[in-house]
Simulated scan of single mutants.
Amino acid sequence: MDATQQDPGPSMGVTAHGRLDPDLCLATLAAHAIPGVDERVGAEHRRPVRLHGRVVPLGLRFTPGQVLVRCLDAPLPVADEPALAALVRRWFGLDEDLEPVNAHLARDPLLAPLVARRPALRRIGYPDPFEAAATTVLGQQVSVAAMRTFAGRLVAGWGGDAGPGLRTFPPADVVARIPEDELQAAVGLTRARTRTVLAVARAFVEAGPAADGALPLTRGQLLALPGIGPWSADYLDVRARLDPDAFAAGDLVLRRALGRISAREAEARAEAWRPYRAQALFHLWSQEAYAA
């Protein structure tokens, strides 16, 4: 049966600590959706995740207080529910208490109207740390749309079947074995970017998986890889490591939101937002992307 024709199965509700912004969750997922991996069907976002070493295709719906999760191909075993709930809680920042964060950021005249407009904004990460790192490299110095195109080509070439109309993002051990020339030609990358993707994949394989789906490489290990600079490390601190005070001062969208200032000026401007600079960054990103 085609994924768009499936009857909704039973959902598991994963409750947020406080409010959740359903529209913003869907918009953020859509903005970074990878062709073949992510699919929007009505109010449901669909994509596979890896759970206990196997691929599970999920349907995600959002309410003002919960993420509703269902498996698309078969009922989820009860024993797997805690692991899936933990993955979803981390992915969508559901454990964070937004009240002190909002109160602190609302003292800033620039952020106050953004916090008032989106008081339930949460920092959204990734379901898989290697996907986060690989797509960050693919997105260096190009638009989000270009990153999605590159990632879609990578998935088309080396992703696996994930059930109803979906494919997996290829894991690090698969990417690490791709011949350099073949990867460059298939994805359309520069030689230097191709080598960075392969270096990241090999570093992930060497490091092995981290506990609780965390990023297995330290900031220093990332910066030691060819082609990984401060912006990539900062972005991964924000989106994959989920450090609440991480900040990507060199990010072009951020600097545009702050009036096209320099990275040094952005770093200084953000001092007032500590220890919640990552939340401030998400507010500014969201304002630039979803200003309507």
Rank of each mutant, 00 (worst) to 15 (best):
V144D: 08
A176Y: 13
P164F: 00
G165E: 03
E206I: 14
A172V: 10
A134S: 12
R191Y: 14
P179A: 12
A156D: 15
A132R: 01
A172F: 09
R191I: 13
P170T: 08
Q140C: 07
F169I: 06
A210Y: 10
E131H: 07
A185T: 14
A207I: 15
P127Q: 01
A172D: 09
V137Y: 06
L154A: 04
T168D: 05
A162M: 05
G139P: 10
G125M: 09
T194H: 05
G159S: 05
G160L: 13
A185F: 05
A176V: 14
L154G: 06
A210V: 14
A162G: 01
L198M: 13
L183F: 07
R191M: 06
A192M: 11
T136M: 05
I124K: 00
W158C: 03
A133Q: 03
T135R: 06
A199F: 07
P209Y: 12
F150M: 07
V205P: 13
T168M: 06
P127E: 00
A133K: 05
A199R: 04
D173L: 07
G163H: 05
P171C: 00
V197I: 13
V137I: 14
L198K: 08
G157P: 03
A203T: 14
V137K: 00
V187D: 13
G125F: 10
V205G: 02
A211N: 03
G208W: 10
G125Q: 00
R191C: 07
A192C: 02
D173S: 09
E206L: 15
V155F: 04
V187N: 02
T168I: 08
A134Q: 00
F169C: 01
G163K: 04
R177P: 02
G139H: 06
G125K: 00
G125A: 04
L166V: 05
V197P: 07
D173Q: 15
P164V: 03
A162I: 09
M147R: 13
L154V: 06
R191F: 13
G139I: 14
T136V: 09
A211T: 12
A203G: 11
P171T: 05
P164G: 02
T190W: 08
R191G: 07
D181K: 10
E131K: 04
L183E: 04
I124G: 00
T136N: 06
